[in-house]
Design a protein around this nucleic acid. Structure first.
Length: 286
DNA sequence: TGCCCCCTGCAG
DNA sequence: CTGCAGGGGGCA
């Protein structure tokens, strides 16, 4: 999925529905999608939702936290009670056409307010793990700063990029350096910063670091505003089952052969770290 | 620092 | 049929 903006959209959407409600039931349809003792979940009230990078934390009253990682194809779809839908102005017509659970449904959470939360994941890479706060802290201690974290500054970008001589795109994607950047936003941020994806990370200058910083924040903020990116396969959906709208803003991602928005040159694609990498051969030079 | 793997399904 | 997919952990 889901990169930082998509997970943030999910968090913002779920927050008002889930905070204050109590988990009454958990159905585990695919065991590998869930880790921990479900007994620690049942009867617990949700106190808050937080996010670091692409990981969503659902905090429970008893101190435990359900840590969610959607990986490539994970979805959290919420079907609120009818009453709640009216209250929140939820688009009921879209919801009624959803057939849930479906083939990809791995976990089903029920709540005392009548809401049902579906964890769908076609490829079974994603998971939800029940953990304690110290366990989460330990597991997230090696993450870089989140792009929306105030500590994510131009200086931080520069100092992190200095630490590696690998291609800058690989470093942007490495969660140990920056938390939340995935393939879509790495490609587009490099394009906007006019940096070739293969540029050695430690050769990126201070002023180029500032551009990367600015553009990452900007395109991610903009994406959140329009509900995130639902690319070709429609694997990412908002929790109400509707697609996001950011895919119409892609600058280079998945646009191989199409004209550069700046210079009209046909965009190119190469493979880096096994991932598709899109760039303008004119605007982004080595 | 690369490569393989975890899975499923779709486009070419 | 092969290749590809928004992620990332483990291994040499």
């Amino acid at each position: 999925m889901p990169e930082l903006p998509e997970v943030e959209v999910v968090r913002l959407f779920l927050e008002p529905y889930l905070v204050g409600s109590t988990v009454t039931k958990l159905e585990i349809l695919t065991p590998k999608s869930f880790a921990g003792d479900p007994g620690l979940l049942i009867g617990q009230q949700i106190t808050s939702l937080s996010r670091i990078g692409k990981q969503l934390s659902i905090h429970l009253n008893n101190g435990y936290i359900a840590l969610v990682h959607l990986k490539m194809t994970g979805q959290l779809i919420l079907v609120p009670s009818k009453q709640e839908r009216l209250l929140m102005g939820h688009p009921t017509k879209d919801m009624d056409t959803q057939i849930l659970p479906n083939k990809s449904t791995r976990l089903v959470f029920s709540f005392d307010n009548g809401a049902v939360l579906y964890f769908n994941d076609q490829r079974k890479f994603g998971w939800i793990k029940l953990m304690t706060a110290p366990e989460i802290e330990a597991s997230q201690s090696n993450l870089g700063h989140d792009i929306f974290d105030p500590r994510f500054t131009p200086d931080y970008v520069y100092s992190q990029l200095q630490r590696s001589s690998r291609p800058v795109k690989l470093v942007l994607l490495d969660q140990h350096f920056f938390a939340g950047v995935g393939n879509i936003y790495a490609n587009d941020a490099l394009f906007l910063s006019r940096l070739h994806p293969l540029t050695k990370s430690n050769l990126v200058t201070i002023s180029q670091s500032r551009l990367i910083h600015q553009h990452l924040i900007e395109i991610m903020r903009q994406s959140v505003l329009v509900g995130g990116s639902t690319a070709r396969d429609n694997k990412y959906l908002r929790p109400d089952g509707t697609p996001g709208q950011n895919q119409f803003q892609f600058r280079v991602y998945q646009r191989e052969g199409e004209p550069c928005l700046v210079c009209q040159a046909p965009l190119k694609r190469l493979k880096l770290g096994g991932r598709g990498t899109f760039y303008c051969p004119q605007c982004q030079r080595l």
